[in-house]
Design a protein around this nucleic acid. Structure first.
Lengths: 208, 208
DNA sequence: GATTGATTATACATTATGTATATCTAATTT
DNA sequence: AAATTAGATATACATAATGTATAATCAATC
């Protein structure tokens, strides 16, 4: 006979809570640890007060846990403000706002740095993070299309997009921060650099 | 009685050759491997035709081997041209040349990418690489000092240095390359961005 | 011919990820 | 109330990697 199966509100609620607790413990471990090298499922499990096998039950693998942590950080990192930014009438102001939002995101939780480190050792996780970054690239592309002069070449647009994409990346933020700048100072510097990256898109000789 | 010790030309020559062979095997393994995750001393040792213990004898640790590979790549990566570049009369041309040299360096051997990945899992190796990068920062600083107008503020100079340092970093090169550019195309784009980063250093209102 | 340095052989300790199997417990269903 | 089920645990094991320890090999040097 087919096994009877059922959904259990209390059970799944408890499971969801465990899941949350593990994610919280993982991001805390990432934040407080000195390096991704010391980040082990054993540590996380102990910090969450569960068994290592529970982590596997919930996330399947180390990579699954890291992706869950990334998504959790993304949910609480202020990226939802991007929609409003993109809807701004002034595309230049929208770009400035976008830079601001991402500086806030990279700065919010030092775990994002550790997650970027994890990309180095896990190609599939790296791919997953890159896919999530594509949203940023699409946002930049949309803004460039609004900002660029009609005569601007496709190549010039691509250059601007890729340059701004690189300028708003985590590595750039980390590099500028490491040089002793606050989040806002980095933000202003990146904004200025992005403005400069837009220059080739405007017509220097508006004749005709 | 004190053990008599001696230096052996043939011995140390053979050892040096082994060392070279291991470094070569290591950089090849890094180059051909898909990720730093698969890079093990076992693999390297086999590729070099020696025992894993020989690797430990020669380099002390995994980190030691990675540093040796980095230094080897640096030696053959064209960075020696920096001296000539810095000696150029025109500081702007020198900066362009510097960008060119580093694009060539990052592009030359895909092992450099893997070595940067290794920074994520080994903080001390990361520190070692960062120290080696400081030479680039000093070079940029020297050029900025030559380029900046006398009235340019220290903060504006620091901004320009840090921004150009980030623009000439490996992550930026990798990001722009991943977007489908040749080495030369990346080079030109970075050069343009560096020129833009210099603008705040020049006096827009040369009045007084 | 004895000694020495580099390499090798073998063994072991430690740490991680990931899988397998059986057990336990509390929430649901009948 | 009894059977069932999902989630968590306990225990064990396979695999791979770094790193250390000790003794043995072998050719170069004294």
């Amino acid at each position: 006979m087919p096994p009877r199966s059922y959904v259990s509100p209390a059970r799944s609620a408890a499971a969801a809570e465990t899941r949350e607790r593990v994610i919280e413990a993982a991001s805390r471990t990432l934040r407080e640890g000195e390096s991704i090298a010391r980040f082990s499922l054993d540590t996380v499990a102990k910090a969450a007060g569960v068994t290592r096998l529970t982590v596997y039950n919930q996330f399947g693998s180390r990579r699954g846990l890291l992706e869950a942590v990334f998504d959790e950080i993304a949910r609480h990192g202020g990226l939802h403000q991007l929609a409003d930014a993109m809807a701004m009438a002034d595309a230049h102001a929208a770009l400035d706002r976008m830079v601001e939002i991402f500086c806030g995101f990279w700065n919010r939780d030092s775990a994002v740095g550790r997650l970027h480190d994890a990309m180095a050792t896990d190609p599939e996780f790296a791919e997953a993070v890159r896919e999530r970054n594509e949203r940023r690239r699409r946002g930049v592309t949309a803004l460039i299309d609004r900002i660029a002069a009609k005569q601007a070449s496709p190549q010039a647009r691509k250059d601007a997009v890729d340059l701004i994409f690189a300028l708003t990346s985590y590595p750039t933020f980390a590099s500028l921060s490491a040089a002793g700048r606050s989040r806002d100072e980095v933000c202003r510097l990146v904004q200025t650099a992005c403005h400069a990256a837009l220059q080739p898109l405007k017509l220097s000789n508006p004749s005709s």
